[in-house]
């Protein structure tokens, strides 16, 4: 009897420990965004870009509402349409709540992704999704703030592709970084994460 109780106690401790490790790595202080560096708060970022309608935008444009921000380029046939489709699905799940969510694609390929190109591209996805572009320097400034990386890779056919950070950055309405939704994260995990960031907004408004 005493032996059994001991076993159960050890098992319980092991389970609690495993859960704690999991929480630490996934949601807790140990959750590591890209390269172990978290994006800055939006309020500490400094960049200027142009949106799909030709308007000037900056990190300040995002304050006041929670935001989803991700990097990509429209000439990629796989990751980008998949990410945009996934995000469109999350926004569909959120329904009218999605209207309170800034959803921004920042291109890492400004040579090909002009304002007009991005405007057409994002029009095929959820209407809430915006496309921001700028000069190469402006894109570099933006990526720096998000601690995102990208790199041009020449292909054999004379064309090129872009390697880039594929996660979706989530900020609350005050501009505080909340979490990253990994590329390909299932919807049942992504949507609650977004809801949590939107809740932070309500709490932020009260305080």
């Amino acid at each position: 009897m005493g032996k059994a109780a001991k076993f159960i106690a050890i098992g319980a401790v092991a389970i609690v420990f495993a859960l704690f490790i999991g929480w630490w790595q996934v949601d807790g202080p140990g959750a590591g965004p890209v390269s172990g560096e978290r994006p800055l708060p939006l309020t500490a970022m400094d960049f200027n870009l142009t949106d799909q309608d030709g308007a000037d935008v900056s990190p300040a444009s995002l304050i006041g509402q929670p935001s989803l921000v991700f990097f990509g380029f429209t000439y990629c046939p796989d990751v980008c349409p998949t990410t945009l489709s996934d995000i469109s699905g999350w926004l569909d799940d959120l329904g009218t709540e999605a209207e309170d969510l800034n959803t921004i694609l920042i291109t890492v390929d400004p040579d090909r992704d002009t304002v007009e190109t991005l405007a057409e591209y994002v029009s095929y996805f959820h209407p809430q999704i915006q496309g921001w572009t700028g000069s190469e320097d402006q894109i570099a400034d933006a990526a720096e703030g998000f601690r995102a990386t990208y790199e041009k890779v020449e292909g054999a056919d004379g064309g090129y592709t872009m390697n880039h950070t594929a996660g979706v950055f989530l900020f609350d309405a005050t501009g505080r970084f909340v979490s990253i939704i990994d590329y390909h994260e299932p919807r049942e995990f992504a949507v609650p994460k977004i809801r949590r960031a939107m809740q932070d907004r309500a709490e932020g408004a009260e305080s």
């Binding site: 890209v34 390697n163 950070t165």
Partner: peptide, 9 residues
């Protein structure tokens, strides 16, 4: 997608 979350093709 590598461990830093960077996608390449």
């Amino acid at each position: 997608t590598n461990s830093d979350g960077v996608s390449s093709m």
